[in-house]
Lab assay of single mutants.
Amino acid sequence: MEVVDPQQLGMFTEGELMSVGMDTFIHRIDSTEVIYQPRRKRAKLIGKYLMGDLLGEGSYGKVKEVLDSETLCRRAVKILKKKKLRRIPNGEANVKKEIQLLRRLRHKNVIQLVDVLYNEEKQKMYMVMEYCVCGMQEMLDSVPEKRFPVCQAHGYFCQLIDGLEYLHSQGIVHKDIKPGNLLLTTGGTLKISDLGVAEALHPFAADDTCRTSQGSPAFQPPEIANGLDTFSGFKVDIWSAGVTLYNITTGLYPFEGDNIYKLFENIGKGSYAIPGDCGPPLSDLLKGMLEYEPAKRFSIRQIRQHSWFRKKHPPAEAPVPIPPSPDTKDRWRSMTVVPYLEDLHGADEDEDLFDIEDDIIYTQDFTVPGQVPEEEASHNGQRRGLPKAVCMNGTEAAQLSTKSRAEGRAPNPARKACSASSKIRRLSACKQQ
């Protein structure tokens, strides 16, 4: 084909351009004929944790799935940006308080904090938690009735009371019990989460009196709706648990309003109706937990002794299953770290194939690490110290990083047969305790 000078094309009309061969290198194709290559998922490591896909996002930050490269346990990490926390009232204080509380709590029905990582340079905090497959609110939203069968609701409620009793025994008032803060594992274990607005009572406090509340409006008791200066913290949790039980068994809320002012007005009056299909035992329990006067409201001991709580409820309806993943529609909620794991395991070791967030990740503290002497050669063979940054567990980050890069360049065919977990650990520049 004859090559045409581009400067001469402006002298031709459209018809003349076609005659000189423009149609031979300008093609129009339908979008259905285009085959897009999927974007390669680059592996990203935060300390010893391999990052997966997004699980959810809230006002405080994002939650992603991660894999512990040492234990191969599935975890969830809450990623918090200090810049964003400053824009939220009491944001930083709530996060630090939640970390302090979770560090000393150990119960099967309370979410466990596994690790805390802090990135000084990017001003990011990573709260590594045990993995929960789904939230209770997500399960309720997945069915038209917006409720659980009585047998399933009873099982979840009993676990909620177990976890709540443990928190109260530790002198902690949750203040925000609701389905949105109750998570579930694949085995059906309920976990109380989000202790950001919780309050730890003084060890020598005479009672459970509280003065502040930041919980969700629909789950607040009349004493808070009416603006009382002080109130019983434990009875606030009992009320919120009662509203939660009402919601998961009926699909409704005892109090509603077009806006928060109308909602608080209705809560302050204390008038509500219980659907007739709840039955006398459940209705009596709800009335005891939603008692207007805090002094007359049920205690956890009274809830445990109630006939509806103690009764064994046979399954009359099919239980609400864990819904498919909202993004991938995966009904099994498979591990989202698998594509990243395959990338590390299947590809040659190259620095361009993975990302390490930083050479140094500070753990379990908000301060910069200490310094240790770096050896410097002298005339008599002895070495003197220069400062060298280290990880919180004493690992020399720069030395590990250099060693990792040197190993990656060394030709050794046997290394390709290593397991995925050992490869992740070798790529991680800074081991965590």
Rank of each mutant, 00 (worst) to 15 (best):
V3D: 00
P6G: 02
Q7W: 07
L9M: 06
L9H: 15
L9R: 07
L9W: 12
G10V: 05
G10F: 14
T13S: 01
E14M: 15
G15D: 15
L17V: 10
M18A: 15
M18D: 01
M18W: 04
M22V: 07
T24A: 10
T24W: 14
T24Y: 12
R28P: 02
I29G: 08
D30T: 15
S31I: 11
S31R: 13
E33T: 15
Y36D: 09
Y36G: 13
Q37A: 10
P38H: 07
P38S: 06
P38V: 06
R39C: 01
R39L: 12
R40C: 11
R40G: 08
K41W: 12
R42W: 15
A43W: 06
A43Q: 00
A43M: 14
K44Q: 09
I46P: 02
G47V: 02
K48I: 10
M51A: 12
D53C: 07
L54A: 05
E57R: 07
E57M: 09
G58V: 00
G58E: 06
G58S: 05
Y60W: 14
G61H: 11
K62A: 15
K62G: 09
K62Q: 14
V63G: 03
K64Q: 14
K64W: 11
K64N: 05
K64C: 04
E65W: 10
E65Q: 08
E65S: 13
V66M: 00
S69H: 01
S69A: 07
E70P: 00
E70I: 13
R74T: 00
A76I: 11
V77G: 01
I79G: 02
L80E: 11
L80M: 02
L80W: 12
K82W: 10
K83V: 06
K84C: 15
L85A: 15
L85T: 00
R87I: 12
P89C: 09
E92L: 06
E92M: 00
N94I: 07
V95G: 02
K96R: 08
K97E: 11
E98T: 01
I99W: 03
Q100A: 03
Q100W: 03
H107M: 02
K108W: 04
V110P: 02
V110R: 00
I111L: 02
I111D: 14
Q112A: 09
D115S: 14
L117W: 09
L117T: 04
Y118W: 02
N119Y: 07
E121G: 08
E121P: 15
K122R: 15
Q123I: 03
K124Q: 15
M125R: 02
V128I: 15
G135V: 10
G135W: 03
M136W: 00
M139K: 11
L140S: 00
L140A: 02
L140D: 00
L140I: 07
S142V: 13
E145R: 08
E145G: 05
R147F: 03
A153I: 01
H154M: 03
H154R: 06
Y156D: 01
F157M: 02
C158A: 11
L160A: 06
I161D: 00
D162E: 01
D162A: 04
G163A: 06
G163V: 01
L164H: 01
E165G: 03
Y166M: 03
Y166T: 07
L167I: 12
S169A: 07
G171I: 12
V173G: 07
I177G: 00
I177R: 00
K178W: 02
G180L: 06
G180N: 11
L183R: 01
L184P: 01
L184W: 01
T185R: 06
T186A: 08
G187T: 14
G187W: 15
L190M: 08
K191V: 08
K191I: 08
I192W: 01
S193L: 03
D194S: 00
A198W: 08
A198S: 02
A198I: 00
E199C: 11
A200C: 07
L201P: 10
H202L: 04
F204V: 09
A205R: 09
A206T: 02
D208P: 15
T209Q: 13
T209F: 03
T209L: 06
C210M: 05
S213T: 06
S213R: 06
Q214F: 06
G215C: 06
P217W: 15
A218L: 05
A218K: 09
A218Y: 10
F219H: 08
F219V: 04
P222L: 01
P222H: 01
P222A: 04
P222I: 07
E223T: 01
I224N: 12
A225S: 06
G227E: 03
G227T: 15
L228Y: 09
L228F: 10
D229Q: 12
T230F: 05
T230E: 15
T230P: 07
F231M: 00
F231T: 15
F231A: 15
S232C: 08
S232E: 10
F234D: 08
I238N: 08
W239R: 01
W239L: 01
W239P: 00
W239A: 02
S240I: 02
S240V: 02
S240N: 07
G242I: 00
T244R: 00
Y246C: 02
Y246Q: 07
N247P: 00
N247I: 08
N247K: 04
I248P: 00
I248L: 06
T249G: 01
T249V: 14
G251Y: 01
L252I: 13
F255H: 05
F255C: 05
F255A: 10
D258E: 03
I260W: 08
I260E: 00
Y261H: 04
K262M: 08
K262D: 11
L263F: 04
L263D: 02
F264R: 04
E265S: 12
E265W: 14
I267S: 08
G270S: 12
S271Q: 07
Y272R: 03
I274F: 07
P275G: 07
C278R: 13
C278F: 04
P281L: 08
P281S: 05
L282M: 01
D284R: 13
L286V: 07
L286Y: 10
K287V: 08
M289Y: 00
L290F: 03
L290T: 06
L290G: 00
Y292P: 11
E293N: 13
E293W: 06
P294I: 02
A295F: 06
F298D: 12
F298G: 00
I300P: 11
I300V: 07
Q302A: 12
Q302K: 03
Q302G: 07
Q302L: 12
Q305A: 10
Q305D: 10
Q305S: 05
W308G: 01
F309L: 04
H313W: 06
H313G: 07
P314I: 12
P315M: 14
V320R: 12
I322H: 04
P323E: 14
P323F: 10
P324W: 03
S325V: 04
S325W: 03
T328L: 06
K329N: 10
K329Y: 07
D330N: 12
S334N: 14
M335C: 10
V338A: 14
V338D: 11
P339M: 15
E342A: 07
E342V: 12
L344W: 13
E349W: 07
E349M: 10
E351D: 05
E351W: 12
D352S: 14
D352N: 07
D352E: 07
D352M: 08
L353N: 14
F354N: 14
F354P: 11
F354W: 01
E357V: 10
D358I: 07
D358G: 07
D359P: 13
D359H: 08
I360R: 03
I360N: 07
I361Q: 03
I361L: 10
T363L: 08
T363Q: 13
T367F: 10
T367L: 12
P369W: 12
Q371W: 03
Q371F: 07
P373I: 10
P373Q: 13
P373A: 07
P373W: 14
E375S: 11
E375D: 14
A377I: 13
S378F: 11
S378V: 06
H379S: 13
N380Y: 07
N380S: 05
N380A: 13
G381V: 03
R383W: 04
R383H: 14
R384W: 10
R384E: 13
G385M: 14
G385V: 02
L386I: 07
L386P: 03
L386S: 12
P387D: 14
K388D: 10
K388A: 08
V390T: 14
C391V: 04
M392V: 13
M392P: 15
N393L: 08
G394F: 08
G394A: 10
G394N: 05
T395K: 02
T395W: 15
T395F: 04
E396W: 12
A397H: 15
A397V: 04
A397K: 05
A398I: 07
Q399V: 06
L400Q: 09
T402S: 10
K403I: 06
R405F: 14
E407M: 14
G408M: 14
R409V: 09
R409C: 09
R409G: 09
R409Y: 13
A410T: 04
N412G: 15
A414I: 10
R415M: 11
R415V: 14
R415N: 14
R415E: 12
A417R: 14
A420L: 15
K423I: 09
R425L: 11
L427S: 13
L427E: 13
S428V: 14
A429Q: 14
A429D: 13
